[in-house]
Amino acid sequence: MRGSYERLTIAGKQAVWAWAFLAVPLVFYGVVRFYPTAQAFYLSFTSWNLLGEARFIGVDNYVRLTQDPVFWKVAVNSFEYVALGLPISLVLSFVIAYYLDRVRFGHALLRALYFLPHLTTAAAMAWVWRWLYQPVPVGVFNGVLADIGLPAQPFLRSTDQALPAVLAPAIWAMLGFQVVIFLAGLKAIPRSYYEAADIDGAGAWRVLREITLPLLRPTLVFLIVISSIAFLRIFDYVYNMTNGDGGPLDSTKPLVLSIYQTAFGRFDMGYASAQTVVLFFILLALTLLQMRLLRKPR
């Protein structure tokens, strides 16, 4: 054994060690990630209530999905979280990062303050925001509206306003992460590009459009993919701000909460797994599409 190791080339020895170190995470991922994923695919073709044996029922769960109005509502909600959350959070975080990049005084402190919400427990933040949305005299937002003479808003009690109201703290928490990533991306652009553009007579808008944004493309791709996935998988803000039911009238319920309720409320594991598989394919399709659209030209 020892002899055969010593006969290996240097590259061969490095490969042996690389695989030795990779073995631990491979086993971990296999047991904790890949096996349950495969299991979910299998369960989506069964009927199973955690007790007894899973019964194979073919594509019945998927047929049921297409006919389930709540599932369609939930799917639309999930897309709304992404469609609103992604552009709003990216524009805000880019603007913040763009100007923060120019600030020397208090730069580190400001950056830390922007990052803080990202570090805070989602449940705690959700509950604080829940208070902020309450009617007067408890709710701060309605208090401010009253002070400037505007009518009080129902926020979380309205089927129209509840989804954006839940999304707001999620965006706020996401901003910290996005700002830090944008800042790193901006810092990676050599100053001499800006100086050359300055001498070339390009105005701030042209520099932003033709130099900063194109050079930020890898950062943008990363943030768009990561943030879309995060908004598609939104759960804890909804759960904590709507008493765990995604209400009122399912108006804020995202896919993940629906899966959670199906699995651990009604113990309908097969149906929950089918929804999980659908979420998996939505995430996969969205990510592939974004990577294709945003791929480096040529």
Binding site: E195, A196, A197, I199, D200, E210, P214, R217
Partner: peptide, 26 residues
């Protein structure tokens, strides 16, 4: 004035033509 930088500061995402035309377009 025009300046040539030590690291050239050519915009990596633009073609040579677009690099040279940048100031003129501006």
């Amino acid at each position: 004035i025009a300046m040539v930088f030590q690291n050239y500061a050519l915009y990596p995402h633009m073609t040579v033509f677009r690099n040279m035309a940048f100031a003129l377009r501006a």
